[in-house]
């Protein structure tokens, strides 16, 4: 385990040095602050629960951005080090390949969590500083939004490792990563909508739709946050959906956790079989 931590430490050190941490934190903070103050304009200030509005806008931002950031840090992790020749030396040390992978995962996750907590936290802090009253329930919803955002990022970091462990060169890894992002974040929902429109509810019933949504971590995240509390789902316009949803919160968390663990496990297997 010490080895994994040593490697995690080096990943964080590298992330700090090559400005990854700074760039992602600033990006998330800037977008979060913009959304917080511009996004609250339409609701006015008449007794609306300001933080819940922020949760809705930030979750929509997360769905696009965190998968992209996760894939960007992860797709290079294995194939990039192999191409640069640093992996050969690293693996000649007394470290297991799975330790390398876990170490990188912990390091990248720490970078992602730091950027999300600081970036989004800045928005909440700024909101609180303006003197808006925020109740405990909203704070809990906000904290769980940040937690699930990190989990979503982790899922895409895992997927990124799997790509990185399978392909032969970095260019391919980058291409596939962008493709996966487009597929899961943009195309999947549109395709599902199209399918539903064509099908008119004949074959694809509500449970089938729910099962299909579990195939996409971005949708699991959406369900998890936009239906989390009554207030949030009302603002998100998903109150109707929230009432009909049969999947409990724990099932959704478990599904998202599976999206972290399974690609990571597969990446470990692919990496351990890879010839140097």
């Amino acid at each position: 385990m010490t080895n994994a931590l040593v490697i995690a430490g080096k990943e964080i050190q590298e992330g700090v040095r090559n400005r990854w941490v700074l760039a992602t934190t600033l990006l998330l903070a800037a977008l979060a602050l913009t959304l917080t103050f511009l996004g609250s304009a339409p609701t006015g200030s008449v007794g609306v629960r300001a933080l819940d509005v922020v949760i809705v806008s930030l979750s929509s931002l997360t769905i696009f951005l965190l998968p992209l950031i996760g894939l960007l840090i992860a797709h290079d992790a294995i194939v990039g080090e192999m191409e640069r020749g640093t992996m050969l030396l690293l693996l000649s040390y007394p470290v297991g390949r799975w330790q390398v992978l876990i170490g990188k995962f912990v390091g990248h996750l720490a970078i992602l969590a730091f950027a999300t907590v600081i970036g989004y936290g800045a928005a909440a802090a700024a909101l609180a500083a303006t003197g808006v009253s925020i109740d405990a329930e909203s704070w809990v919803a906000f904290a769980s939004m940040i937690g699930s955002s990190v989990l979503l990022g982790a899922a895409f970091v895992s997927v990124g490792y799997l790509i990185s462990a399978l392909v032969r060169d970095r260019g391919t890894a980058a291409g596939i990563a962008i493709g996966i992002w487009l597929l899961l974040v943009l195309i999947f929902d549109m395709a599902l909508l199209g399918l539903l429109a064509v099908d008119q509810g004949r074959v694809i019933t509500a449970p089938v739709v729910e099962a299909l949504l579990l195939l996409n971590p971005a949708d699991i995240y959406r369900l998890l946050n936009l239906t989390a509390s009554d207030n949030v789902s009302m603002f998100a316009g998903m109150a109707g959906l929230a009432d009909n949803l049969s999947l409990g919160r724990n099932v959704l968390l478990l599904a998202l956790g599976t999206w972290v663990a399974v690609p990571l496990g597969l990446a470990a297997v692919a990496f351990s079989r890879r010839e140097l």
Binding site: V6, G9, K10, G85, T86, L89, S92, Y93
Partner: peptide, 26 residues
């Protein structure tokens, strides 16, 4: 101890940091 042909290191870290990293692994 192993020195590969065309040895490569992460360019963003300093020499001391890289050597400290490898020392910890050993």
């Amino acid at each position: 101890g192993y020195l590969p042909e065309n040895v490569a290191f992460n360019a963003s870290l300093t020499g001391r940091e890289v050597l400290a990293f490898y020392a910890r692994l050993k």
